[in-house]
């Protein structure tokens, strides 16, 4: 474990930094690498869904299954790129892009009513009935001048959540 950080050369660190658009400092990347090796229990060079779920705090997250579709099998470079949306140095646009990606399950750049309904289902589980969920979503969509059939694209997301004080930051512990 202790030697793992030394396996990352200065060149590697810079390459990863390049890859995540300098949203993390070199020290943070070294820390993240240590964490990556810790999560990658069978040292395969990537983190499997199973390994992500071994973190209980992640496993109990309502969106964990949805996120697993994005994070399953990430290697270190991709791992850092995934986390870069949560860096304080990432732009608001980057963060919203990430949120959009979570919604856009088929990755075609459009979020449908059903996509939104699915996420709402993840967040509320059995505590709101299906009809009620649909009703709530239709209502707020209409109030925002959309309809049940509108396809939301990234710029809609930027418009909708971009001007609220979006706070999506995770601090990387550096020792």
């Amino acid at each position: 474990m202790g030697s793992s950080s030394s396996m990352l050369t200065q060149y590697d660190i810079e390459e990863v930094q390049e890859h995540c658009n300098h949203t993390f400092s070199q020290q943070e990347i070294v820390s993240l690498y240590e964490r990556f090796c810790q999560l990658d229990r069978n040292c395969g060079g990537f983190i499997s869904a199973e390994e992500f779920l071994s973190v209980p705090e992640f496993a109990v997250n309502p969106l964990s299954q949805r996120l697993l579709r994005i994070v399953d099998g990430l290697n270190f470079k991709e791992f850092v790129a995934f986390l870069s949306a949560f860096s304080p140095r990432a732009s608001l646009h980057q963060k919203i892009e990430f949120i959009f990606k979570v919604y856009d399950s088929d990755g075609n750049g459009k979020v449908t009513f059903n996509d939104m309904l699915d996420v709402l289902h993840d967040l509320t589980g059995q505590f709101i009935s299906h009809q009620q969920r649909e009703q709530v979503l239709t209502q707020v969509l209409e109030e925002a001048d959309y309809t049940k059939d509108s396809l939301l694209v990234l710029s809609d997301f930027v418009k909708i959540i971009g001007n609220s004080g979006l706070k999506m930051e995770v601090e990387v512990p550096v020792d």
Binding site: L63, I99, Y103, M116, L137, I160, S164
Partner: peptide, 8 residues
């Protein structure tokens, strides 16, 4: 709508 979509 913002409150529902903002899953941050």
């Amino acid at each position: 709508l913002r409150d529902l979509l903002d899953i941050s």
